[in-house]
Simulated scan of single mutants.
Amino acid sequence: MWLHVLILALVTLQRVIELVIAHRNTKKIEARGGFEVGSNRYGFVVALQVLWLAGLWYLVLTYLPPIDQPWIYAYVVLEATRGWIVAALGSSWTTRLMVVPGEKLPDEGFHSWIRHANYFVVAAEIFILPLAFGLIWYALGFGILNLALLFWRMKSEDAALRPLREEPTPAEETPEA
């Protein structure tokens, strides 16, 4: 049981730390003139994460299923990938959809391969951690809900960030003095 608690406590601590970092970074982005897009979706993202984690705590501690180590290892690899993504984005990483007009979007590291790299990792986490406890139905249920929510969110994000991805036309460029 101690290992079950340790795993879930570390995941919970990681989520809390991420919220603190995201809040700090959101303030920095706002100070650079950034603004939030699609704020009506953020509550759904938070609710899904809270329900997912609370449900894991309940099911794992109620039934104490055996821990499938290969899935735990896969989850650890995902967390290392998440760390890489957060570090690559630096003060631009946040849990909200923030836009800073005129700033260049990241196109290096994981983002050079996958446009929504952080969402890829989140989708995998929500699916893989329950599998580590043998909760296949839980992984599938929350995995599908999360994918639907992420698809909805990515459409908003792509629309908001499209102007930052497009190359300026010669008429839009400012002449050098």
Rank of each mutant, 00 (worst) to 15 (best):
V46Y: 03
G38V: 02
A132L: 02
K155A: 12
D158A: 11
W2D: 12
A54V: 15
W84L: 11
S112T: 05
V60S: 04
W152L: 06
H4M: 01
G43I: 01
A177H: 13
L3E: 02
V100F: 10
Y73N: 12
Y119L: 00
G102L: 07
Y75I: 05
A22M: 10
W137V: 13
F127W: 05
L150C: 06
E157P: 12
Q49F: 10
E108V: 14
P106T: 14
A123Y: 08
L161Q: 05
W52D: 03
I114S: 03
H116A: 06
G33T: 01
A31R: 07
K27H: 07
A171P: 14
I85M: 13
W52E: 03
I67K: 06
G38K: 02
Y119N: 01
A124L: 08
H111G: 07
L129W: 08
A159W: 13
L150F: 08
L64E: 14
Q69L: 14
L150Q: 10
M98F: 14
V77G: 12
P70A: 09
S156N: 09
T12E: 00
R24Y: 06
L19K: 08
F120T: 08
R15D: 03
V5I: 10
I85W: 10
G102V: 09
Y58E: 05
W84M: 12
G83D: 11
Y73M: 15
A159E: 12
A160R: 10
A171R: 15
P101C: 07
